[in-house]
């Protein structure tokens, strides 16, 4: 039996999707067989990036708090969410085409996709993995490390 959060399918980690997709796309670049689910992670990420910041999210539980925070993380780092959405749409189409016929793509094109997936998720990854860093910075004269 799934736990409550998973049962509602509310957890989505954009960073993890990007990492899976990058590793799978690199497999394709090297001419190896790639895990389809991992390539699809790139498509799922693009779907998320196209919509997460404009859809009302009040009835989506934990997911809504993530999407709100992801939205802030990207805008704080200077990303224009409208442009992110458009770019994600294009990248999604490219990944779908790449899945069907990898031989039609040049190495450079795949690198561009990988660069986008990693860069756009970096601010989100920073925030979601910041606990230790923040704790370290917040040490006081009472607790010394």
């Amino acid at each position: 039996m799934k736990n409550r959060l998973l049962a509602q399918n509310q957890f989505l980690d954009p960073s993890r999707l990007a990492e899976d997709a990058v590793l799978a796309l690199s497999q394709l670049q090297r001419g190896s067989e790639a895990n389809i689910e991992m390539i699809d992670a790139g498509i799922r990420l693009c779907d998320y990036l196209m919509t997460f910041w404009k859809e009302p999210s009040k009835d989506r539980g934990a997911f809504s708090s993530f999407s709100e925070s992801d939205k802030n993380d990207l805008t704080e780092e200077g990303w224009n969410l409208e442009e992110v959405s458009q770019k994600a749409q294009g990248i999604k189409e490219q990944i779908a085409a790449l899945k069907a016929s990898p031989e039609l793509f040049k190495e450079y094109d795949i690198d561009q996709i990988k660069e986008f997936l990693i860069n756009v998720t970096t601010p989100i990854w920073h925030k979601r993995s910041s606990d230790f860093r923040d704790r370290k910075i917040k040490r006081s004269f009472i607790i010394r490390g």
């Binding site: 993890r16 990492e19 690199s26 690198d111 990988k114 660069e115 990693i118 990854w125 979601r128 993995s129």
Partner: peptide, 14 residues
């Protein structure tokens, strides 16, 4: 490659 390096180190950090 550099994007794989970032994907791997990020996953390990997470």
């Amino acid at each position: 490659d550099v994007w794989e390096q970032l994907a791997v180190t990020r996953r390990l950090s997470s």
